[in-house]
């Protein structure tokens, strides 16, 4: 590898006829990091991933994966990539272990103990025919397939879909182990909570464009929360409405409710001038607030500029 990036795209663009799949994607995934690829359905996550794996050919732009060209170096690249497709369908009607042996052979041999370890970890019975498995078990076989050869780069499209919460936790532990072993993980999701506790950074796509790249720690600070303050005496709304980050101020008698974007400090400082009886602040629900901010508001443009 010639640089420190596991994935690097420049202006990567794919149109399906007139329909935009992804446009102008500039993304850098550092070697050894876990990056979440976040966006609502139809945002262009699968399209981007399929471009990286040479299933799709870009309309414009270019991608480098592990320092290699996805098309020209397809063979050597796929030896070092573990890929979990978003829509899993298995070729053939054989048992899961037959299918995994095929992948092991095709990849030039894989320690079988590692395969059985992964299967035990995810609690999936490999002696059963894949086509007769439930969606969750199919997903597990797909995950074993992606992790089995200890690839340098894991590209996982909606990896937790179909997994029950317990298995989702196990999967996330596998991702953390992968990072510990120096593997790079690039995983898409339309649910922030999934990547929040494992990813180092998240890239957020919306409507076929990259909206932001953020460190996960900074996500919490950006959260919009609702604050309710009960004062001993009635207060004037104007005093609070002018504060930075504070909006939707409603005062009814001694009770103030408002929305705070970012730090709470300015609001608290002003509130402290009065006698405060009670203060309620809803835990920032990242799902509802942060993501809707990126997905639906025009503020996404600013967010992109402040990206990590």
């Amino acid at each position: 590898m010639t640089d420190d990036f596991a994935i690097r795209t420049e202006g990567l663009t794919k149109f399906y006829g007139d329909r935009r799949g992804i446009e102008g994607l500039d993304l850098e995934v550092r070697a050894g990091e876990v990056m979440g690829f976040l966006g609502p359905n139809g945002a262009g996550k699968t399209t981007s991933i399929r471009l990286l794996l040479d299933f799709l050919r870009p309309t414009r732009g270019h991608a480098t994966v592990l320092g290699l060209d996805p098309r020209r170096d397809r063979a050597s690249l796929h030896r070092r990539i573990g890929y979990l497709p978003g829509e899993l369908a298995f070729p053939g009607r054989g048992r899961a272990d037959d299918l995994l042996r095929f992948f092991a052979d095709a990849r030039g041999g894989v320690a079988w103990t590692h395969v059985t370890e992964l299967a035990a970890r995810l609690d999936v019975d490999l002696s059963r025919p894949v086509h007769a498995m439930s969606k969750g078990n199919k997903q597990k076989v797909g995950l074993v397939q992606a992790f089995m050869h200890r690839p340098a780069l894991l590209i996982l499209d909606e990896p937790t879909s179909g997994l029950d919460p317990l298995m989702q936790q196990e999967f996330l532990a596998m991702v953390r182990d992968a990072r510990t072993d120096g593997q790079t993980v690039f995983m898409s999701s339309h649910v922030l909570a999934e990547v929040q506790h494992t990813a180092d950074r998240v890239a957020i796509v919306r409507d076929g464009r990259l909206a932001a790249v953020e460190r996960v720690e900074s996500l919490g600070r950006r959260a919009v929360r609702t604050v309710e303050i009960h004062f001993a005496d009635p207060v004037a709304p104007d005093e609070f409405a002018v504060l930075p980050g504070v909006s939707d101020v409603v005062v009814s008698g001694p009770v103030l409710t408002c929305t705070v974007d970012g730090r709470l400090d300015p609001l608290i400082k002003v509130a402290a001038r009065h006698e405060v009886v009670d203060l309620l602040s809803a835990e920032p629900d990242l799902e509802e607030t942060f993501l809707s901010y990126y997905y639906h508001s025009e503020g996404a443009g600013d967010a992109a500029r402040t990206g990590a």
Binding site: R74, L77, Y83, P85, A89, A106
Partner: peptide, 9 residues
């Protein structure tokens, strides 16, 4: 997608 996950051009 899975069939072509094998390392071949």
């Amino acid at each position: 997608e899975l069939l072509m996950a094998v390392p071949l051009s």
